[in-house]
Nucleic acid binder design. Structure first.
Length: 606
DNA sequence: GTTAGGG
DNA sequence: CCCTAAC
């Protein structure tokens, strides 16, 4: 696509966007045409500062008036999810359309007025995806027909009261008059100008006023506008024929880079040519800036000339290959907060404002770093917003649990990757098996366990919340289903060995019992022995009385292997003995044989 | 690592 | 049989 010179042949009375350096009486020649073609070819993300111009009757281009700029700003930024390419297309369409318009009286005023603006509010978020619509709408808005003055006044009337800057009397008295373009003619040394003059020069350059009193910024901005270049010094430069004649550019560029690191944001009306879609970093800033701008202008807050905002607009242009880091995003949010609060008086718009800002910032960038490495992310909510955050294991922050180490030893898959892999493998295997022993109780067990655990915690009121969270979140995912032991029913032989072991070593000496009595039962752990002993004791309390009462114990536990009453009696006696003896377990060891004989006699077993 | 105890 | 705290 050839670079359009769509300002040059626009119909008289039309407004046109033109690269800032391009305003020239000899409208056949665009000063920076070649540069722009470079943009087109390379698709660089360097922004070009455009100014709004009006095509006079004789075909010359003059900077648009404040009102025109204001209107343009509103309508343009309202639909600011555009890149420059699209504007070019639109502009060419406009050229055709304007030719048509010149043949017949304009019947339609394409000025954004209040109703339209209000309607745009909810639509704002759609603009990102509704490029086509935005384009067509912009088609209308980028061409403002002067003959629609009545409509335009309406728009002014509604925007003025809110937009104080445009009528800020403290700025200058040149509010309504045409800017003094002579200030830009010939050799211009901005250093010699006062702030007032700089502001006037700014107005002459960009066609609109500024309240900025920062001399350096004004000079840079004007220089950029006149030269259509970002490599401009902040001082010591002379502009002649829209080119920099001065020096000190080096120093200032490094200064620019320096400030680029601080990451200030752009809010100005800067168009980034091309790149939308094929350069994430570029589109990031682009959409960011434009969204922000649109947000402000939506409330008709035309503060696009704030230095702090524009600084970044300047910066992000030369070197913008790096995506923002997380920290950068966070810091940016802080800056944004201050920035906005400083400029936006209405606190009511804060939530919506943030909402728009957070989304584009956070969502895309947590998934890949600057090197393109993809990180696993998970959805999380942050302050009510759904965002992607890196998927990392949630480690306890407090003192590590002791058994976490052994736990980790058992499962060498503590790393997130490993966890996922292992879980996936297990699940896949289980999936093949269907509702097998492990799969079936998986989910209900998880829930009931957590629930029960929490309930226990609550009743105890001892364990802290973190432990709860940890056990609820991490444990089930990692551990559950991985190492569940195959269920082995206790045989009568094992029970006897256990009772014998308890009689010999005492209850509680589970490891000893396991070593000595369960050497050939490797699958029985000391915990198993303990649990079984506990169950035996419970059985004595539930079954023995029933037995005494004459009721049938099997009716109570029909599916469980019945434990002979003799053994239960022995268990009961041993238990009572343990309780009576208290810590006095040693004698049991030696008297175990005796007691066993005695009890065995009583139970008629063994 | 072992034990106690809740689940 | 699991899980955890406490030792």
């Amino acid at each position: 696509m050839a670079w359009p010179r769509w300002g040059e042949r626009a119909a008289a009375g039309k407004l046109a966007l033109l690269p800032a350096g391009g305003v020239d009486d000899s409208h056949d020649t665009l000063v920076n045409k070649s540069e722009e073609n470079d943009f087109e070819k390379k698709g660089t993300s360097d922004p070009v500062v455009y100014r709004l111009v009006r095509v006079e009757g004789d075909g010359t281009l003059v900077p648009a008036t404040e009102d025109e700029v204001l209107q343009f700003d509103i309508s343009f930024i309202m639909r600011s999810q555009l890149n420059f390419k699209k504007i070019n297309i639109i502009a060419q369409e406009n050229r055709l359309q304007s030719l048509d318009d010149s043949l017949s009286p304009p019947s339609e005023c394409r000025v954004i007025h209040s109703q339209h603006s209000d309607k745009l509010l909810p639509e704002q978020g759609d603009n990102v995806t509704r490029q086509d619509n935005a384009s067509t709408e912009t088609t209308k808005s980028t061409v403002l027909n002067d003959s629609c003055s009545a409509e335009k006044d309406k728009a002014d009337a509604c925007s003025r009261p809110v937009c104080d800057t445009s009528t800020d009397p403290s700025v200058s008295g040149v509010n309504s008059s045409m800017p003094d373009f002579s200030i830009l003619r010939g050799e211009v040394c901005l250093d010699d100008l006062t702030i007032r003059e700089l502001q006037e020069a700014f107005r002459a350059t960009f066609g609109r006023q500024t309240t900025v009193k920062d001399k350096i910024w004004l000079k840079r901005r004007i220089t950029m506008g006149l030269t259509n270049s970002y490599d401009v010094p902040s001082s010591g430069c002379v502009i002649k024929d829209y080119k920099i004649v001065g020096k000190n550019a080096k120093k200032d560029i490094s200064d620019m880079d320096e400030r680029a690191k601080t990451g200030l944001r752009a809010t100005s009306l800067v168009i980034y040519p091309g790149n939308e879609g094929d350069s994430p970093s570029s589109s990031y800033y682009q959409s960011e800036d434009q969204q922000d701008s649109s947000k402000r202008v939506k409330r008709v807050q035309i503060h696009n000339d704030e230095p702090q905002g524009n600084l970044l607009g300047e910066q992000c242009t030369n070197k913008r290959t790096r995506k923002p880091t997380k920290r950068y995003i966070e810091e940016l949010s802080d800056i944004e907060t201050h920035d906005s609060t400083a400029k936006i008086s209405s606190p009511a718009k804060r939530p919506a404002h943030d909402e728009v800002l957070i989304k584009p910032r956070v969502t895309p960038f947590n998934e890949a770093d600057s090197l393109g490495t993809i990180y696993p992310t998970r959805k999380d909510t942050l302050g009510g917003f759904s965002v992607h955050v890196p998927y990392v294991s949630r480690m306890r922050r407090g003192r590590p649990r002791k058994d976490f180490i052994s736990f980790a030893d058992k499962e060498p898959l503590v790393e997130p990757k490993g966890i996922q892999t292992a879980v996936e493998m297990i699940l896949a295997n289980d999936g093949d098996k269907g509702n097998h022993l492990r799969e079936a109780p998986e989910v209900p067990l998880k829930v009931s366990s957590e629930k029960g655990h929490i309930e226990a915690v609550d009743s105890k009121g001892v364990r802290n919340l973190q432990a709860k969270v940890y056990s609820a979140v991490t444990k089930p995912k990692i551990k559950r289903g991985l190492t569940r032991k195959h269920h082995r029913a206790w045989t009568l032989c094992e029970v006897v060995k256990l009772v014998d072991g308890v009689a010999r070593f005492g209850a509680g000496k589970w490891s000893e019992i396991r070593k000595l009595s369960f050497a050939s039962y490797s699958y029985r752990t000391s915990v198993d022995l303990k649990d079984k002993w506990r169950n035996l004791i419970r059985a004595t309390k539930t079954q023995l009385p029933a037995q005494k009462d004459g009721a049938c114990p099997r009716k109570i536990n029909p599916s469980i292997i019945p434990i002979p009453p003799s053994i239960l009696l022995r268990v009961k006696e041993l238990n009572e003995l343990q309780l009576q003896g208290g810590g006095f377990t040693a004698p049991v060891k030696f008297s175990g044989q005796d007691s066993k004989v005695l009890q065995g006699k009583g139970s008629g077993f063994l």
